[in-house]
Every structure is written in structure tokens, then in C-alpha cells.
Computed example of a mutant assay.
Amino acid sequence: MKTKLKVIFLNLDLVLTSAVLTVLVGLTCISVFSRYIFFHPIVWLEEVQLWCMVWLVYLGAGAVYRNGGHIAIEILVESFPKKVQRIIAAAVNVLMVFILLFLMVQGGRLVGQMLNTGRATSYTKVPYALIYSAVPVGCFLMICNMLAELYQLWKGGSDEDTADRERGQDV
């Protein structure tokens, strides 16, 4: 039970992304039935779908990164020796951490601005600060994933077998 909770905690972004995706798909299906079968569209649904999409992108990005799902052109890097590959991977991760820190700070400023202005959505009156808080939260989760990979690289290299073991896959 303890290891199961640990796996859920380590994959919290994936769990939350799955929940948001489930809500998005469920509400969209309900909306289709409501509009085309009962001829009664749900007017507030577009706002909720927007929130779900924003949170889905920013929460899911960390999980996609951790599982190696982002697009990468590796042909040049793979032509170098393993040690150079690790150095390049570390340099890319450091650069990405700085970029994400900048985005996280700017996202936090946007959330602060939305709090100060008190802007809210039209139908549901949900504060935009809550919706846009996905940016700093998602960036923070991505930074955590990148720092964990940097630690693995520093500790002795994160080859495919190590990454597969961390995800719980058989090697």
C-alpha cells in the first residue's frame, strides 16, 4: 500500500491530468447529447472546457517530459559518446529550467494581475486567477521533473534502462 501511494504521489501530475481529461471528455459527451438530442445546449460548458484545456496542457507537460514524450531530434546527439550525450542532456535541462523559471514567474505575475483586477469568467464567475494558475503550477512540476533528471545525470547517468526502471517498466 505504501509503495502504491508513493507511485501515485510521484505521478501526481499524471493522475491530475487524467482526472481533468476525464472531466473534459465527459462534459463534452454530455454537451453533444444535450445539444443534438435534447436541443438544449449547455451555455457554460465552453468556459469549463477552456479551463480543462489550460490545466490539461500545463499539468500534462511534466508527465509527458518525465516519460520522454516530447519531440526531440536525437540523431546528432546520439552520434556522440555517452559521456558527451550526458553533458548535452544536462546542458539542455539546465537551459530548460531557466526558461521554465522565467515562465513560472511571468505566470505568477499574470495570476497576481488577475487577482488584483478581480476578473472572472462570464457565465460561471470563476476567477481567471484560478484558471491561469495552471501556468506556474505546471512550470513548477516540469522544473521538478527536470531537476530529478539532472540529479540522475549527475549521479552517474540516466540511460534508457534507468528511466524505464523509474517508470516501473520491465527492462
Score class of each variant (00 low, 15 high):
54 V>T: 10
99 I>Y: 07
71 I>M: 11
90 A>M: 07
51 W>K: 06
70 H>C: 09
82 K>M: 08
98 F>Y: 08
68 G>Q: 06
98 F>N: 11
51 W>A: 10
82 K>Y: 10
76 L>A: 15
89 A>H: 05
98 F>W: 09
94 V>L: 11
79 S>H: 15
54 V>L: 09
61 A>Y: 00
52 C>Y: 00
86 R>K: 12
79 S>E: 13
54 V>N: 03
89 A>E: 07
66 R>G: 02
51 W>T: 12
84 V>T: 13
71 I>N: 08
80 F>M: 10
60 G>D: 00
61 A>D: 02
58 Y>L: 11
67 N>V: 07
53 M>F: 08
64 V>T: 12
76 L>H: 09
75 I>H: 11
83 K>T: 06
92 V>M: 08
71 I>A: 10
88 I>G: 01
74 E>P: 12
69 G>Y: 01
73 I>K: 12
93 N>V: 06
81 P>I: 03
70 H>F: 08
73 I>N: 11
73 I>W: 08
75 I>N: 13
68 G>P: 07
96 M>H: 08
79 S>W: 07
98 F>V: 15
57 V>C: 09
76 L>P: 09
57 V>I: 15
55 W>E: 02
83 K>C: 02
78 E>A: 14
61 A>L: 08
73 I>G: 15
96 M>K: 06
81 P>C: 04
84 V>P: 06
59 L>P: 01
65 Y>N: 15
84 V>I: 13
55 W>L: 04
100 L>G: 05
67 N>T: 13
81 P>G: 07
91 A>M: 12
93 N>D: 15
93 N>C: 13
51 W>D: 06
92 V>N: 05
61 A>R: 01
90 A>D: 02
83 K>G: 04
51 W>F: 15
74 E>S: 14
63 A>D: 03
81 P>L: 03
69 G>M: 03
77 V>S: 15
78 E>V: 10
82 K>V: 13
56 L>F: 08
97 V>H: 01
76 L>D: 06
97 V>K: 01
64 V>Y: 00
69 G>T: 03
66 R>C: 02
80 F>Y: 10
61 A>V: 09
53 M>D: 05
85 Q>D: 05
96 M>F: 10
77 V>A: 15
92 V>H: 02
77 V>E: 13
86 R>S: 12
100 L>C: 13
56 L>N: 02
82 K>G: 10
69 G>S: 04
